[in-house]
Design a protein around this nucleic acid. Sequence first.
DNA 1: GTCTATAGCTGGATAGAC
DNA 2: GTCTATCCAGCTATAGAC
Lengths: 206, 206
Amino acid sequence: MSIFNKISFKDQAFKLRESAILDATTSILGDKGFDLMTMDDVANAVGISKPSLYKHFKSKEELVGEALIRLIDGAITYLADIDKDLPPVQKLRILLEWAMRVRLQGGMPFLPSTSTSVRSMLMKNISYVTRILKLNSQLEKLVIAAQKSGDLNPKLSCDVILFSYYSRTCDPAVDYLKTFSKMSDDAIVEHMLQVAFNGLTSNSAQ
Amino acid sequence: MSIFNKISFKDQAFKLRESAILDATTSILGDKGFDLMTMDDVANAVGISKPSLYKHFKSKEELVGEALIRLIDGAITYLADIDKDLPPVQKLRILLEWAMRVRLQGGMPFLPSTSTSVRSMLMKNISYVTRILKLNSQLEKLVIAAQKSGDLNPKLSCDVILFSYYSRTCDPAVDYLKTFSKMSDDAIVEHMLQVAFNGLTSNSAQ
DNA sequence: GTCTATAGCTGGATAGAC
DNA sequence: GTCTATCCAGCTATAGAC
């Protein structure tokens, strides 16, 4: 076994641990949110010490940024893999279903916090902002196309639809149903999609 | 002027300051959320020192609890004053409009945080839980009646509708529209009510 | 690169003078 | 009841031994 293989192994282990750290971060963030998540929490969950954690990510902000970038990249990839022949509104529905399922399995919402401080922190992360803008421009195109075809309400402004769409990816109703109702994950997703697209009233097509 | 009047004056001033403290708390809470709000923030906003603040409220948790109780009481009072002859779904719509306007004017959402720790903190506050249960039972009756009359979708479980309804009172889309769009408060409220009740699709009655 | 130990700071809560 | 001054816990981040 040459020295190159050793380096490669080490490198691979490093990547694996980094991935484990991001997994733990994602899970803890989904549970406690940014402010209450501590670096000790993450280090303990992964089984390493805090200084080791800081060898991988030089600050809490960077760590959370990387975790969010991975999430957004996942969304972009998932969206790209959806059958291209489906109508835009179907693509939006399928992506939203994916986001809800990610969260139901202990993941993180697209919007990790609604507080202005966390938002401004993320906006300083150029890499993150780039991904968000990329995803957003794709979603915007889908919304406009769906409005043109009449599948989404053309009377609503595109902003209203987009922001509402993002909000549904972190709708606390999903958490409450998971915690307090006895519904299955499938049933929760189905009902929440129904509410998101057709609202609470009944005078709408199923 | 008798000693009794003096006491009364002092008492009145005390109540006034207490009210000012709750106003400041509400505003800061609406902006930063529970975790980032500090007792120094509140004391500075009111113009008193931190120990004085602690003379009124013996902990941060109690302070936030009282602010939330005042908010829920406001909702209960507002709901009670709505024209009794209106159909249930209209009452729900009017109350939701009120909640959105309160928030647009710098107030606090019904759900001040989605994190489990804040939720468990509030659940220990008996006085708060009592109010929430009172409001909730009234809303539940309205939802069931509206489902019976066909105004709300009878195929959705009551839980789904109620939790979604609460979520709309703290929908981050409202904040984003306020911050990033040039829509008036009236327009934001109107569009968000439309989205909440009729969804994002267009095949629904206006 | 990993740890133990700790610096430095912030924020909740209080002691004690007035 | 109000303040100044302070305690203490817990957090981010790092120094320094191995």
